[in-house]
Design a protein around this nucleic acid. Structure first.
Lengths: 371, 371
DNA sequence: GACCCGTCTGAATCTAACC
DNA sequence: GGGTTAGATTCAGACGGGT
């Protein structure tokens, strides 16, 4: 990529850098000069359409998002809102600039379609796999354990920046994949008010922004966040030696972001080094081997002596007589033991020999390159 | 969910099950009866932005790749094609039916938007994390290591099927998350022609369909795949004891699918069962245990901490002070909770120990199985 | 200080059968 | 079809207090 700082005329006088601006995002963006931004990160309202109160099994109430800023009358209103701010975003982007947007299934398909329709060129969709998502309390869906980011260049012709080697280094010298495993923003990082309540319902973790900014910008590039909330994007940008412009409408969030930024210092330039990636523990559910046909449903397992037998069901449970349960539970049940490691207890037949279940897991670990 | 097989009039004579149909998907779908399908899996053509040559869904080549109008017209043509087949899909779906679509960032945002606009209700977006994705050779993007599935009900009011316990069992007794780690279709599973070349460019792994079908259908449900390719969906459906209707246009794929299905056998019905939903187990009224003397009238129940007490009345209600009601209502009343599961809330004394009420019910279920 | 245990919480479109 | 009620339903991680 030819950097803006090399290929373009000097910045217009009206672009003052490293500021958080208080106001409506589209209005404020209209006041910024065309082509002046290298990278945009945007975390717009999700239009969640939540219907009622949700309680955990222990009857405690989930403190969900019920703020007015997330409510839209219908898809049309949401689309119109997004076309407006994304059009402004495209005007502000340098011709080689890129944009990141984050969302969930409620809104990400609208965002992706509008990006494509406006002429952006999608480079990747990235999955933020949450280490500690909220469970599905009613057991009616899969646990919603991820959010999606779209990374797009201003146009198909953009010679965009991608710090390939930095991403590879961040991932133990393997190419960085499109699925990122990161924890939620909790603990001390989560900003709280004087009552100890979260200040913002959806504060993003700095680790996420760290990876985004490190991947797609250079030091001294200009990063814009039109919905900056409590200031995660400008905070990480500042720490990593990038310039920032951030916009926030809500006075509480705006004040919190100002205070937060005052405490952030830019890393010395010789320390803008990568942080090590957290590797996930590879855990392989037994059901995996039923799905992939290594142990198809109907297979008979036995214990080492061949005295106890059980049949594999399509969902990875074992069945013996009228009883059904996991490999561990059934091992315990049939031996009247308080507990049992099903991986080492059960055997299956392969090439006429009895093979311990755990062998499958070991083989799978060996084959598995990236967790 | 009330199954189609219980709540609906008999299938029209024209719905002949367990067939692969040769033809254009929309045309063939038009010939099938409304509301006759329980679940649809669709892997439509991705078709966009490939190798500088753009093709419309009808395979005609779009020229003028650099022309903005043609790009728009290409998205428009793709959208129009998808609105057509998704509208037919919605007509065919039973009111409580669900649909799965799979795609990549090239098309999944168009699909998601159209699904929402047509009135489908998204339940989850699922990320298929590929165990062995193709690396990014040019080092200009993140390794594209996943595809996205959208799971949606026909409408927000659909009482859709989700085999929660089976999915939990498949994942070592933890809720199944929205990110699935599965290998690509390779090796013996990959269909090849006489030259050893892969027969279909994007054959999906059976493990993916196993999870999809197990999660969202019952045995004997009807599964439709409008773009069945080499027949992965009908093959897994048949093995798992589901009915199928599959559509394929390309004669080579159609023939391969026919040959493949001829070799697939359905699992014996006693091996098809998965962990049942507790909701679907036979209900046992609490009063049963008062009648049969297991908990005679006059028995004192307490909560787990032993702080709240209530007395069992002859009709199976509980009495505390001036208040009387079901085990659930009294648990809710005494804790000021909006609701309460009395089975797990109340304890009684047996052999000097506090035993949860639900244990009685479990013992009764177990006894019922044996008899 | 180390460890255990109980408590709290997170972008959530979160019930279904019966009368 | 609407209202009522039975009863199904949670995982990881941070934090704080007690041993």
């Amino acid at each position: 990529m030819t950097s803006r700082h090399k290929s373009c005329p000097p910045l217009p006088a009206e672009l003052r850098l490293d500021r958080i601006l208080h106001g409506e995002c589209v209005e404020v963006m209209r006041g910024l000069p065309e082509g002046s931004i290298d990278c945009i990160f945007a975390d717009p309202p999700y239009n969640l359409q939540l219907r009622g109160e949700l309680r955990r099994p222990d009857e405690s109430v989930v403190d969900g998002v019920d703020d007015a800023w997330d409510k839209f009358s219908d898809y049309g209103a949401y689309d119109s809102f997004c076309r407006d701010w994304l059009s402004e975003a495209r005007r502000l982007l340098h011709k080689d600039g890129t944009i990141w947007v984050i969302g969930s299934y409620h809104n990400i398909f609208r965002l992706g379609t509008i990006l494509q329709d406006l002429g952006f060129w999608i480079l990747n969709d990235i999955v933020w796999r949450k280490a500690n998502p909220m469970p599905n309390f009613r057991g009616r869906r899969f646990t919603n354990a991820h959010e999606t980011l779209i990374w797009a260049a201003r146009s198909p012709e953009s010679r965009y920046r991608f710090n390939y080697q930095a991403m590879k280094a961040l991932n133990d010298d393997l190419q960085m994949r499109s699925d990122w495993y990161l924890p939620l923003c909790t603990g001390h990082e989560r900003l709280r008010n004087e009552h100890g309540l979260k200040l913002h319902p959806t504060q993003k973790p700095e680790s996420l922004l760290h990876r985004v900014i490190l991947a797609s910008t250079n030091a001294e590039d200009v990063v814009l966040d039109p919905f900056c909330g409590t200031g995660t994007t400008p905070a990480v940008a500042k720490r990593l030696g990038r310039h920032y412009i951030a916009i926030e409408r809500h006075p509480d969030y705006f004040r919190a972001a100002l205070a937060r930024l005052a405490l952030v210092e830019c890393l010395p330039s010789d320390q803008l080094a990568v942080t090590p990636a957290r590797r996930e523990q590879p855990r392989i559910p037994f059901g995996t081997f039923v799905e992939n046909g290594a142990l198809p449903a109907g297979t008979i397992l036995s214990d080492r002596q061949g005295r106890l037998k059980a049949c594999v069901a399509p969902d990875g449970t074992l069945v013996a007589g009228k009883q059904r349960g996991s490999i561990h539970k059934m091992g315990a049940l049939l031996t009247s033991a308080p507990s049992c490691n099903g991986w080492t207890f059960w055997y299956f037949e392969r090439d006429g020999k009895q093979v311990q279940l755990d062998v499958l897991r070991q083989e799978s670990h060996a084959a598995r390159q990236v967790s």
